[in-house]
């Protein structure tokens, strides 16, 4: 057998085309090893060749998912790969979504193994961990070497049809599958060992982790919108000009609460975005494109809504830890409730 033919998928950033200003880059293919492909190729130690690299901008993919997928599949198909590798995407949400979508599609349509890599909090991981092998990576590209070190061995096993070990052993994100095996000790002994450890306060490991379904049931609808107080919240990073509280452009550690009672309209003079995860040009020119104060003010005047709440809450949803976002909203959620807000419009970029 000749060398394994690999097609690799990258976003515009890792392909070196550009940052957010190039995120609308349409799918293209290069018959070359690009960016992180170098490390992957090296990892295969001559057993595999990256015959082509398919590149697509994250925004283009997110906004035109079906078209992008069809275009990308055509590009990949031509090279008759034996294996498909996407990313790794680390904690980049849109990139993770794209890697998961494309890897899933390639497996189904081309019937070849596909793998990718992501940080556990990447929304793409939650979406695709059941259908695609996703190597668990660090949350930034600093974890590239580590990620590639796990991706290559798993890819080889998949290609060679070898048995795939447990998530801990192989380094992929748990897929929610159960597998029977022979243990050294019988179940009753293991259970007693576990409970003794638990009682002693020592670390123990359950054999049956419960799936974490964190769903919140929807609240009742607003009966009378013309009397309702509506608040605006955004993860799109809109802040007063100058970003007075220095909300970070990524991995935000805080949120802002700002008074909009004096504003009928947000402009490039009064507000801007602090977000570093999308091209800020459009939001900076007219922040209403992310936080629609102008329209809500009109609707308030027309009596369609009771009132636009005096404060809006904002943070930057860019690689921000889920735990942070949760903590922010727990805190300001209570404030919104105490202030008598009836409903919230939350906008995301």
């Amino acid at each position: 057998m000749g060398n394994i033919r690999v097609v690799h998928y990258l976003n515009q950033f890792f392909a070196g085309i550009g940052g957010e200003e190039k995120a609308d880059h349409r799918p293209e293919v290069r018959e070359a090893v690009v960016g992180p492909g170098m490390a992957i190729k090296a990892g295969f130690k001559g057993q595999a060749d990256i015959v082509a690299t398919v590149i697509c901008g994250d925004s283009y993919f997110g906004e035109n998912t079906e078209e992008a997928k069809a275009e990308i599949l055509e590009l990949i198909k031509k090279y008759e790969p034996d294996l498909f590798i996407a990313g790794p995407a680390f904690n980049a949400g849109r990139y993770g979504f794209a890697c998961g979508e494309v890897a899933d599609m390639v497996q189904k349509e081309l019937n070849i193994p596909a793998i990718t890599g992501m940080y556990i909090e990447n929304p793409g991981a939650e979406m695709f961990k059941k259908s695609v092998y996703i190597i668990s990576t660090k949350n930034s590209a600093a974890g590239m070497r580590d990620a590639v070190g796990k991706m290559v061995p798993l890819a080889l096993k998949l290609i060679n049809g070898e048995e795939i070990g447990s998530p801990e052993k192989e380094g992929y994100i748990e897929r929610g599958l159960r597998k029977n095996y022979f243990a050294d000790k019988r179940g009753s002994e293991r259970a007693v060992d576990m409970i003794i450890k638990k009682l002693k306060g020592e670390e123990y490991k359950t054999e049956y982790p419960m799936p974490a379904f964190d769903r919140v049931p929807p609240n009742p609808a607003i009966k009378n919108m013309s009397e309702a107080t509506i608040a605006l919240v955004t993860s799109g990073g809109i802040v007063p000009k100058g970003n007075p509280d220095h909300i970070e452009s990524s991995s935000a550690s805080k949120y802002g609460k700002y008074d909009i009672s004096e504003f009928d309209n947000l402009t490039d003079i009064t507000h801007e975005t602090a977000h570093g995860g999308y091209d800020p040009v459009y939001a900076n020119l007219d922040p209403d494109r992310v936080l629609p104060v102008d329209v809500l003010r009109d609707l308030e005047k027309e009596g369609k809504i009771g009132k636009l709440h005096r404060y809006f809450y904002t943070t930057v949803g860019n690689g921000t830890a889920v735990a942070s976002a949760k903590a922010f909203a727990e805190e300001f959620g209570k404030e919104l409730k105490a202030d008598g807000v009836d409903a919230v419009i939350l906008t995301s970029t």
């Binding site: 906004e63 998912t65 976002a325 909203a329 959620g333 209570k334 939350l346």
Partner: peptide
Amino acid sequence: MVKEIERVGIPVVHVCTVVPIS
């Protein structure tokens, strides 16, 4: 954030581009 707002008892609508993420 959407879930935490919902959890305190306020109905919330998420306006976003990538619906599967939402």
